[in-house]
Amino acid sequence: MRSVLAFSESPALAAEVAAGAATICESLGGGFAVIAVSSETPSPSNFEAVADAIVEVAKREGAQVVLLGATRLGRQVAARIAVKTSQGVLSDVRDLRVESSGGAAAMLTGVRPVFAGKFNAKVASVLPCVATIPSGAYAPQGASASSTQPPATVEIAMGPKAPERVKHIETRPKPKNTVDLKSAEVIVSAGRGFKNKEDLVLVENLAEALGGVVGASRPLSSDLGWLGEERHIGLTGIYVRPSLYIAVGISGQLQHVAGIKDSKIIVAINKDKQAPIFQVADYGIVGDLYLVVPALLKAIETQKAS
């Protein structure tokens, strides 16, 4: 019995892990996908119970791969499953397939970013194993319409409630959930090139003129706190994929670039011609943002009027 067990607590990722599981099944050469669902939403205080329940189902179903979403919770669930079953974990992987070369045992391989996205690594784990996938790795409706078996759905049973070692005190929804950077078509981001918080009105106006939203590099959202953490784009923040990304006064550190790679067009405005952001931009304006942004705003206005 060979199967792939898929689970994600994130509604957005659940369909993607299911599609990923179906794809891996095909490359297993006839396995079946099992979609695990949980009546209880995993949380930071019960992720251990969720992991234990998944381990039980995986054993019963003979899972070769447990596929999870690479969310903050998903990584913790993966870690516990790995220790409990002594299995390897492939993190943040795409293009998953089962490969065997020569007489060697079959491995699960995948491709993942490393060194802040400067490189891709092809990684492999002996089977059975655990893998986590980022959002966007698999098209939800895609894969295996041809698959012989439709996926089975099982409810994971949480064991008798053990006293939780991590006590939940309260949940605070993140403020300003109104900013939807992930699905924005146009994003105008501000970086350290801004001298004062008040000057950010420039990016706000530019974003508004282009029908976009405002993002930030880490110094502005975290260190200076001029913009909210929910606008932090980059390795430790949000990954975005707009049609148009405009980086204003952003030097282009790897950690920031990691979050904008999938943008269709990248524009950079920076007074330092040597800034690394120009190496990853389609169009760059070398100049003082305090002069360039007003000029841009004026040009947009003129164009709209004509």
């Binding site: 299995q87 390897g88 974990v89 492939l90 391989t109 970013p113 490393v114 996205g117 400067k118 490189f119 891709n120 690594a121 092809k122 990684v123 492999a124 784990s125 002996v126 194993c129 790679k261 190496q279 990853v280």
Partner: peptide, 13 residues
């Protein structure tokens, strides 16, 4: 060690 790195290549931008 169950996980190995098979190859690392520069991301094309």
């Amino acid at each position: 060690a169950a996980v190995r790195v098979l190859d690392t290549t520069a991301q094309s931008m």
